[in-house]
Design a protein around this nucleic acid. Structure first.
Lengths: 165, 165
DNA sequence: GTTGAAAACAAGCACAC
DNA sequence: GTGTGCTTGTTTTCAAC
């Protein structure tokens, strides 16, 4: 358990490859290979392998909600009354399908869901709560928090590589 | 204010382009142009314009934390005692630099920060709280919530286009 | 703002090590 | 598992509309 590749089956090249890829997603395979000091074919092979193993889950295009006319973001804490398996799953589905919803966490504890949304103004935030969340019978209470700012963290990979930054 | 492009300066082609791009980030410019029924050069031009305007904030490579050996995710609610501008900014910086931290929300309300983390096990979760969060003098209390599941929402664009799905 | 065509570039593949 | 060369396809650029 003290081997350099932890038990995830990722060797040093994989980790370096992921580190570059996370920081520079647009990087071409050719440039990536040069950075790592391996042949392009090797690099392409590794990337494909990491994709098929699911280590690379995918690629996302990130839009600026404010530039889309949605300058307000909120996190809505949702607490349920009754907890049936079907009901929770159905509510989860409904939440992620609500326009403006960026992500939803199903969590343990007093609250059941944390819903991150982007909207045009305070009225829209209220409407999301009233029309898309509290309409569900199983929802007991909600608490809406304005998001001052959201920042991305250094991420999971830094924990594996031990990268300071 | 009732014009089709809302006041964001995005026309129908922009919105259709973004819709395709968000759903299929890997799509080539050529394929994208075909989907939209415009020339490749036009398509490339629009994408570049949306990037430089900041509507397209960027592209992210998403890693599977579990595949990296971090099967446990948590949301840590952080409440502060004293609130100085410098202190809050410094803590924010420290949080996003902590290995395993995926994203951090600075929010209004009783809590000040919501910290989304991925870790190897419960002990690592405790260590993050003790070694990276409560070590800061300004932190008053924390509450750690296990994440059962996290799902991405349909997103901001659906609010602008009115896409049902 | 949009286009088609040429030139530059990168990706994918089969094969050799 | 890694490197090489060829073929294919894609991105970029630009003068013109």
């Amino acid at each position: 358990m003290a081997d350099p590749q932890s038990s995830t089956g990722l060797d040093d090249l994989d980790l370096r490859l992921l580190a570059v890829l996370v920081r520079q997603p647009g990087r071409s395979n050719k440039a990536l290979a040069e950075d790592l000091g391996v042949a392009e074919s090797t690099c392409a092979y590794r990337v494909r392998a990491l994709r098929s193993r699911g280590v690379i889950a995918g690629v996302r295009v990130v839009l600026d909600a404010a530039a889309l006319g949605l300058p307000l973001q909120g996190v809505i804490r949702v607490r349920l009354g009754r907890h049936t398996s079907d009901g929770v799953g159905g509510l989860f589905d409904a939440l992620v399908r609500t326009p403006g919803v960026i992500e939803v966490f199903h969590v343990a504890g007093a609250d059941d869901f944390l819903v991150h949304v982007a909207v045009e103004d305070a009225a829209a935030l209220r409407d999301i709560v009233l029309q898309h969340i509290t309409v569900h019978e199983m929802v007991s209470t909600t608490e809406t928090h304005l998001v001052f700012e959201r920042r991305e963290g250094i991420g999971p990979l830094a924990r594996v590589t031990g990268a300071a930054r």
